[in-house]
Simulated scan of single mutants.
Amino acid sequence: MDEGIRVAVVSLPLRLSVSLGPASVETTRPAPAASEAVAREYRDRDGYRADILGPGFAVPLPRVTRAAGDVLTVDDGIGEASVLHDQHVSVVMRRPISRGTRASSMPA
């Protein structure tokens, strides 16, 4: 133990009592049906910012180098894009694959 540091231990008896009231049931409305997002609706989003950590700390968006042909492309209204930008985040998705044809190349 470092000199100059003093430790005091105090043991206190503790009695804790918890009382619950009657259960209540809240009625909620059903959730609205989900709709599929369209890539062009995300065109005005900033997406990933390499400079988010501040000046001198730029971290570029990683690039897909292995299996780059498996990257999904979407029509963003301007052309084909492989990066979908949302607010403060960007996503690169893998193209759906058929397990029967590609199972042997999938990582374990």
Results as ranks from 00 to 15, higher is better:
81 A>P: 04
100 G>K: 15
83 V>K: 03
82 S>P: 05
52 I>H: 12
85 H>W: 01
44 D>Y: 02
54 G>Y: 00
80 E>M: 09
70 D>P: 00
44 D>E: 07
4 G>Y: 02
52 I>V: 15
57 F>A: 10
105 S>R: 15
10 V>P: 01
10 V>G: 09
76 D>T: 13
50 A>K: 10
31 A>D: 05
13 P>N: 13
38 V>Y: 00
64 V>K: 09
71 V>C: 06
36 E>T: 11
58 A>H: 06
37 A>K: 07
101 T>P: 00
77 G>F: 04
34 A>F: 01
84 L>W: 05
11 S>T: 12
23 A>C: 09
65 T>L: 05
63 R>Y: 00
48 Y>K: 11
80 E>D: 09
57 F>P: 00
71 V>S: 02
7 V>D: 07
38 V>T: 09
90 S>I: 08
32 P>I: 04
83 V>S: 04
7 V>S: 11
52 I>G: 11
32 P>Q: 07
108 A>F: 10
16 L>V: 15
2 D>L: 12
53 L>M: 13
101 T>Y: 03
69 G>T: 07
18 V>F: 03
6 R>A: 12
60 P>D: 07
66 R>C: 02
7 V>A: 10
14 L>S: 11
47 G>T: 05
86 D>T: 13
66 R>Y: 03
61 L>H: 05
99 R>W: 10
56 G>Q: 04
94 R>E: 09
89 V>H: 08
78 I>N: 09
34 A>C: 03
27 T>A: 06
17 S>C: 08
86 D>R: 12
23 A>F: 07
98 S>H: 07
101 T>C: 04
36 E>N: 06
47 G>M: 04
108 A>V: 14
33 A>N: 00
70 D>C: 06
42 Y>M: 07
83 V>N: 03
7 V>C: 10
9 V>I: 10
74 V>F: 04
64 V>S: 04
78 I>M: 06
78 I>L: 11
76 D>K: 08
39 A>Q: 01
79 G>C: 05
103 A>W: 13
31 A>K: 09
19 S>L: 02
17 S>T: 14
93 M>R: 15
33 A>R: 07
11 S>A: 08
27 T>N: 07
1 M>F: 03
84 L>K: 05
48 Y>W: 11
14 L>F: 04
51 D>K: 13
72 L>Y: 03
59 V>W: 00
59 V>Q: 03
75 D>P: 01
14 L>Y: 01
83 V>E: 05
65 T>Y: 00
55 P>C: 03
73 T>R: 11
104 S>H: 14
42 Y>G: 02
36 E>R: 11
8 A>K: 15
70 D>R: 13
76 D>S: 10
76 D>V: 10
60 P>H: 07
45 R>I: 01
60 P>G: 06
8 A>P: 06
46 D>F: 00
2 D>T: 14
86 D>W: 06
3 E>N: 14
